[in-house]
Amino acid sequence: MPDNRRLVLVAGATSTSGLAAARALSGAGVRAVAVGRDPEKLGRLAEAVPGVRTEVCDLTDAAAVQSLAERVRETDGRIDGLFHLVGGWRGGGGLAGQSDEDYRILEASFTALRHVTRTFDDDLRASEAGRLAIVSSTAVARPLAGGANYAAVKAASEAWTRAVAHGFAKAARDAGEPLRAAAVIFRVKALDGLEDTVADAFVKLWDADAASINDTVVTLPQD
């Protein structure tokens, strides 16, 4: 179980899922930094979950993410966990309705994932128990024409996360050390109503040995 020595960054924290994650981490005694683009929404989150620190950052901007990392390391230290919740939905209209505009909006979540995982990779590897999790969709396994853009972005995000998992394993193997960091994919059909379930599943990642969960896909809710 996480404790107050650990530090977790919640990327895309201004959503309902971000609020659930902040509450779950705070309830477990974990230090959390909630990151988003909207200062007002972050302010409301801070009021709802006392003790959670907030940072305004456009995670699609690589330079901004690097500055964020420097601020977090200076103020809080290196992170032990990263919960990526940047997302959204745009779809419908069959294959012909999959516009470039919708794709670019959805693609921002993947761009943000690339930036934050690359920037904080050393932190997670150095941690005694580094954990990364993303929220994906069951649409990856069965994509539909009306959600092709969405499924494609989620599939790319899953592939990237699995590559991060491989990097964790390779670094540990090359160093002759036990694996301490793990990257996990949570798949849901829809997040509505499952925000607390997903948040609790993230917190529980620290209950498991890294080697047993690294590079795994967990469908929620579980039977």
Rank of each mutant, 00 (worst) to 15 (best):
T14V: 06
A190H: 11
A62R: 08
L106W: 04
D192C: 06
A145M: 11
P221D: 13
R6G: 07
F202M: 04
D100M: 13
V188S: 00
A183E: 01
D3N: 14
M1V: 13
V184G: 04
A172G: 14
E195Q: 10
A156T: 02
A151W: 08
V30K: 08
E101M: 08
V72C: 05
Q66L: 11
H166Q: 15
V10S: 02
G18F: 02
R23D: 04
F83H: 06
T138V: 08
T111S: 02
E177R: 14
R5V: 05
D200N: 12
R71C: 09
T219F: 09
V86N: 00
K170Y: 13
G92T: 11
G88R: 00
A63D: 15
L45R: 05
F202R: 06
G77W: 04
R23I: 10
P2L: 14
W160H: 12
T75Y: 03
T117A: 00
V30A: 15
E107N: 14
S26I: 10
I134G: 00
A64P: 05
G88E: 00
T219M: 07
T197L: 04
T216F: 09
D122R: 09
F168V: 03
K41I: 01
V30C: 15
A159T: 01
R23N: 06
E101N: 11
V10F: 02
A159M: 08
G97V: 00
H84G: 03
G146V: 08
L82A: 02
F202Q: 02
E177C: 09
A139L: 12
R31Q: 13
E70Q: 13
S157A: 14
A141V: 11
G88Y: 01
A48T: 04
A69F: 04
V56R: 12
D192S: 13
W89L: 10
S17V: 07
